[in-house]
Design a protein around this nucleic acid. Structure first.
Lengths: 136, 136
DNA sequence: CCTTGACCTTCCCATCATGGGAAGGTCTAT
DNA sequence: ATAGACCTTCCCATGATGGGAAGGTCAAGG
């Protein structure tokens, strides 16, 4: 099948398929005589793997490692789990940072009248810097 | 003062100060005869405002609006609050997405032995796609 | 046989906020 | 006068993705 069909079947855009090939995440695709890339069902399978890993927030580099482990029959599940755990920790760290920002902002917004008057603790905090809001 | 001192005093790198000027977030700085940018305490104040807003995750565009409101004595606090609320919602949405990814991955990792054996539910899920994990 | 439209190719540009670094000018203290 | 710290502008890179242009290919229908 051509790249368009592979894209539709996998949920990965044709643009991204080419990009993944260009950065070496995917092997160079076979080509027709006229230069069109050719894909088989196994390739679509791989593309779906990549899309799901992206949906779980893995970086391209991590996905590259996941693909290598996936293709290696003798892998140790410990290696996969370690990779996953690293990513879980990162996701939770990032989520915690966002929540901390949100919490700070919510506290400020609570005390903002939100009417026609100009007084606003949100701007006051930004201007005067009530101190760091990123707790140690 | 020169840009380096303004950078140290505000916590915004010299590189970023020039960038903010280039995108119009800051007015063009005064210059010495030899072309050096000149800053006053009020400018450092503004830079700190920007840095704090960045620390709270606001985008440059939002910061631009916040600065405009800050400088406008007749602003309505409602406008500030609305901007903040939009951002709070976005932060919480993003945090929730990260947490959803983390939760899915944690569940998969729980069932992964994490030893020398190759069987691994994490890879299985990526390969077979236990279905969407992003709830509707 | 030729046209049309859908598809493919490569190449370049843009995002967002930030940093790195090069090449070259300026300032200050010795 | 010279060293060293500082400044200037300009270009490039990030990560993952999309947009779009210019041009080649293919299948179907007249």
């Amino acid at each position: 099948m051509n790249i368009g069909e592979a894209a539709r079947d996998s949920g990965v855009s044709a643009k991204m398929i080419r990009y993944y090939e260009s950065i070496g995440l995917l092997p160079r695709a076979e080509r027709t005589d006229s230069g069109y890339r050719l894909y088989r069902n196994a390739d679509v399978h791989t593309l779906r793997f990549i899309r799901r890993a992206r949906d779980l927030g893995f970086s391209m580099e991590q996905i590259s490692e996941l693909l290598a482990l996936w293709r290696e029959p003798g892998r140790a599940s410990a290696d996969v789990k370690k990779l996953a755990q690293t990513h879980i920790d990162e996701l939770e760290t990032r989520a915690a940072q966002l929540m901390a920002m949100s919490r700070t902002l919510r506290h400020l917004a609570e005390h903002c009248h939100g009417d026609q008057r100009p007084e606003c603790p949100i701007l006051d905090d930004l201007a005067e810097g009530g101190g760091s809001n990123q707790q140690p």
